[in-house]
Each structure stands twice: as structure tokens, then as C-alpha cells.
């Protein structure tokens, strides 16, 4: 009998205790962040959209090799010494490779950060920018190359011309050497 009333009493008081706890939460500050109006500042090492700095990139292809989902495509061509347009890197050293194509498909990117750690020149980096969703998936294919396709073709042609010239020179010189050796 005593147990019976004790149970009723504890059931009643614990319910009141619970209500006291919930009422204290009513007046506590809400944890909600109303997203488009207020945003959290992300830590500076947050891994979101990638950004390529073209003045650092030398088309070494390390990032494309490191990428586990193959979302990076890199193509480069050597700078011909005869090229009238010569470029320098960010540190003042002459550019040796034109980046003719540098594309990242963010529809595939898994934000693992491997490209960032593979890059020898710190050209590719994750930024804190994350609001870039699109209605069309093709719009997520970002093209970072600064050269137009026509310019890229021009650079390739210049290099091919230079190489052909080099080869011709080499051939004539080796032929001359052979001739000398015979005599």
C-alpha cells in the first residue's frame, strides 16, 4: 500500500520535474541559424569549391593524377622560345608550360583535398565558397584555362614549328659531322 502511494507520488513529481526542465528550455536561446540571412563563418581550412591560381600552375598534372574521382582534366604544352608572347610565374620565373586546358567538374568533385596536397606549386586550393549550385549540371564544369582554344592551337603550332626547326638543324649538323668524320 505504501509502495502504491509512493509510486503515484513519484510519477506525479517526476512529471512536474520534467515540465520544469522543458519550461527552462522555452526561454533558452535558440540554436537555429537562419541560413540565408545569417551564416556561420567557416574555418579557413574548410574544403569547399576549388580555385586555381593560373600564375602558379605549370600543368604538371599531379592534381589530375591524385584525384580519386577524375574530375580534373589538365593539358599543357611547352612554351616555344620563338613565341612572341612570353609569360612569367607569380615569383618572376619564366613560364615553361602553357596550360591549354584546365577543367574541374564540380558535379564529380568529392572535396577530399588530395589535389591540394599533391600540387607542388600551391596553385589549386579549396576556398570557403559553397553556394554555387546550378540547375544545369553542365554549368558545374568550370574552365580555368586563360587561353582560348584558338590561342592554344596557336601555341601548339608554334611549338611544333620550333621542334621541326630544331630537328632540321640537328639533322643537318649531324649530317655535317658524319661528313667530317668520313673525311
Amino acid at each position: 500500500m505504501f509502495e502504491y502511494f509512493k509510486n503515484i507520488w513519484s510519477g506525479f513529481t517526476t512529471a512536474l520535474h520534467g515540465m520544469a526542465i522543458t519550461s527552462s528550455h522555452i526561454f533558452a536561446k535558440s540554436v537555429t541559424i537562419q541560413y540565408p540571412d545569417e551564416k556561420l563563418t567557416l574555418p579557413s581550412n574548410a574544403r569547399n569549391r576549388l580555385q586555381l591560381e593560373m600564375s602558379r600552375c605549370n600543368a604538371c598534372n599531379s592534381c589530375a593524377v591524385a584525384c580519386p574521382v577524375n574530375c580534373i582534366t589538365v593539358e599543357g604544352t611547352r612554351v616555344s622560345p620563338d613565341d612572341p608572347q612570353q609569360d612569367v610565374h607569380w615569383d618572376g620565373k619564366p613560364r615553361k608550360m602553357w596550360v591549354t586546358r584546365y577543367e574541374i567538374d564540380f558535379a564529380k568533385c568529392c572535396f577530399c583535398g588530395l589535389c591540394q596536397s599533391a600540387c607542388p606549386t600551391d596553385a589549386i586550393k579549396h576556398t570557403v565558397e559553397y553556394e554555387y549550385s546550378e540547375y544545369d549540371r553542365n554549368k558545374l564544369l568550370y574552365k580555368f584555362q586563360t587561353l582560348s582554344p584558338a590561342e592554344a592551337e596557336e601555341k601548339k603550332r608554334l611549338l611544333a614549328e620550333f621542334r621541326a626547326k630544331e630537328k632540321e638543324k640537328e639533322c643537318s649538323s649531324t649530317a655535317g659531322k658524319a661528313h667530317e668524320a668520313k673525311e
Binding site: T22, H25, I26, F27, A28, K29, S30, V31, T32, Q34
Partner: peptide, 13 residues
């Protein structure tokens, strides 16, 4: 609103 406040949310805003 009360359910939201008890759970420390804002509720419909």
C-alpha cells in the same frame, strides 16, 4: 512555436 522553443529551435519564421 512551443514545441520549437522547448527544443531550442525557432519554429516557423
Amino acid at each position: 512555436k512551443i514545441s520549437a522553443w522547448i527544443q531550442e529551435r525557432l519554429g516557423p519564421m
